[in-house]
Write a protein that binds this DNA or RNA. Sequence first.
DNA 1: TAGTGGTCTAGACCACTGG
DNA 2: CAGTGGTCTAGACCACTAT
Lengths: 257, 257
Amino acid sequence: MPRDRVESEQPASRRIAEELRLLIYSGALAEGDRLPSERHLAAEHQTARNTAREAVRLLADEGLVTAEHGRGVFVRRSAPVLRFGADRYDSAHRTSGTGPFAAEVERQGLRPGFEVLSVARAVPARAIADALGVDGGRKSVFERRNRHFADDEPVQLVTTWLAISVAQASRLTRRDPGAGGIYARLEDAGHVLTRYTEQVSARMPRREEVEALELPPGVPVLDLLHVGFDQHAEAFEATRFVVRADRGALAYDLEPG
Amino acid sequence: MPRDRVESEQPASRRIAEELRLLIYSGALAEGDRLPSERHLAAEHQTARNTAREAVRLLADEGLVTAEHGRGVFVRRSAPVLRFGADRYDSAHRTSGTGPFAAEVERQGLRPGFEVLSVARAVPARAIADALGVDGGRKSVFERRNRHFADDEPVQLVTTWLAISVAQASRLTRRDPGAGGIYARLEDAGHVLTRYTEQVSARMPRREEVEALELPPGVPVLDLLHVGFDQHAEAFEATRFVVRADRGALAYDLEPG
DNA sequence: TAGTGGTCTAGACCACTGG
DNA sequence: CAGTGGTCTAGACCACTAT
């Protein structure tokens, strides 16, 4: 007698995943709730543990659940999103001394943090060299890498590139950027931000980014390349923001040309 | 005699993954190249096939490789990115009759396509109801869902919501939006776009989106919520773009406030 | 047909968490 | 300590691709 392969069609792991998915979307399993253990799921569905495990993994890769070693698998909590507005370059944020990232983090009732990862000359990627109009030769730009936190959780990696001459004139070759941050120093050196471009994409994180941002599986990153132009229409800085996509979003307020 | 657990530390699957990752980043395995088969990898590293398979899966989840059933596992090709500029709402694009999406796709030398998925009244999500200033009751908005293609490959899902009265006045309750697209009809009905907001986030696709966009594993989506305001500062339309992140990027050109 | 990835089994041991 | 997820083994059969 043929087994009932008529209505099922789907592999067991996907069927188990779909069942759990519905429980999550329906709210029967709420944020923070623990899923049945892999061994329980396997027993319930009369499959091997690996099959149940595969189902759980499918959900983890969708960003729906997070496994915690020794504790269980939990429905992922969606943290309130940090909304980084295009107004983050308004001069008001620089005079405040905190910077736009810190301002938004505080607005969410969280404690902002900031760490300088590196400050050094570097070889720029092609896109950066082009944007800054440098030749892309050896160590032709100055690179500053930072990591930003909200309540001790890393949220974004920020890399700023400056032409060597710009970095020197603005004293940004030293580790501590000083009050008001990088933009305040650039303004001190006579660069007035008059226009900027931003290109936004998203991708899965690289291995190093997974570590630096402590990312669980199934969380992509926003990859934002920002280029600032001064009063002479010169591109004087380029910055790449790599943001945990489950914690940060970007907001723009625009008028059609 | 203790086995050499000193320098390895990492599980076998991760070591195999790291080895392949380096081959890819170094260019030894170029885009489109086939990886060794799972059975070969397993034999080489003297592990079970499942262990080699796990290594390959780690790379697939990072978006580095794509498995093709019966053919092998290949280094993913990065298609040229469609760059959707903020100028897509300039009126020039509407008079051209093609629309901004088609214009960008053609600029890349690809053939644009367009499909109407649904046109109906609907219950708006909270965020949409708030944005449009409707009460969120039963079927309180008009919803249009489209799918856009480049060379027959689906690239983005676009959902537009309009207040019922706006949809009726602009004749957007019929399936065919007519020449110039939705925005041309809204303009006909007297809505001049004077300002718009966009909120950009990224996430892993839902199961339906995986199907509709034919997404391989390890590809996130950009999720863009656009709200347009007319000459009376009324929000007259809201649109959500769900874009394959490996095919599309957003570009903005801005001036600080 | 041979070779590939996709799914699954029925175990095993390890590492981590919590009472 | 029991229970959890993390990793792994050594098979098996299926579905798909290419020759």
